[in-house]
Design a protein around this nucleic acid. Structure first.
Lengths: 105, 105
DNA sequence: CAAATATATGAACAATTGTTCATATAATCA
DNA sequence: TGATTATATGAACAATTGTTCATATATTTG
């Protein structure tokens, strides 16, 4: 038999859901994916994804609040990157699973 | 160097985000988690999670639409279970990562 | 210092979404 | 068949959320 998923109580599930919710917006997810390979400046993200600077800032604030991302100031620029390896692995796993599901049609 | 996450285009990211969005609601996620160990009837889910039957049905319809869950009728009851092993693994991985992130505080 | 560049913040609005209520469909049993 | 149980559906509403606009803060450079 496979691994057991530990049972989470109502509150823990809500916390987990909160993370999923943040990943659930296309633009926010695109921002995360773009920051995956290397730290990116806000303006760079906005230009590359064709989003307004304001919108990118708002989204980054939410992602930062959930510790999915962290930003480091270098002179006039603030570079954002994934907060840690767990977030990176998490995205990797999800993309992997989604890709495999698509392939099975 | 670690594994590379394949670059997804705008549309693919949107599809991925759609899955995350569905997992982003606490009640929907609780329903999924409850169906993780074994197939569950709608009424059972509603009772156990203290949600209205209507609400559970609505959520199950969305989850089913995204192929996260599938239902099988047995007489008067419809039993829902996770659609496949990918969904199961996906949830497992996510819970795993979230749990580890919490533990690092 | 003022000007310029890069990012952040707050208010406001449109659109989406979770939930409820009322009701319909499906299946079983008397 | 009609009655009962289990689930599904549709409309309506309240609340949340993504986005924009205007403006503020921070950093560098003249």
């Amino acid at each position: 038999m496979g691994c057991q998923v530990p049972t989470l109580d109502k509150q823990q599930v809500t916390i987990l859901a909160e993370t999923f919710r943040l990943l659930g917006d296309p633009n926010r997810l695109r921002i995360l994916m773009y920051c995956l390979p290397e730290p990116r400046a806000v303006g760079d993200i906005a230009t590359h994804l064709e989003l307004s600077q304001t919108l990118v800032s708002h989204h980054l604030r939410l992602l930062k609040g959930a510790r999915l991302v962290r930003g480091e100031r270098q002179a006039k620029h603030v570079f954002y990157e994934l907060a840690d390896e767990h977030v990176r692995d998490m995205l990797h796993d999800m993309v992997h699973h989604i890709a495999e599901e698509d392939a099975e049609d």
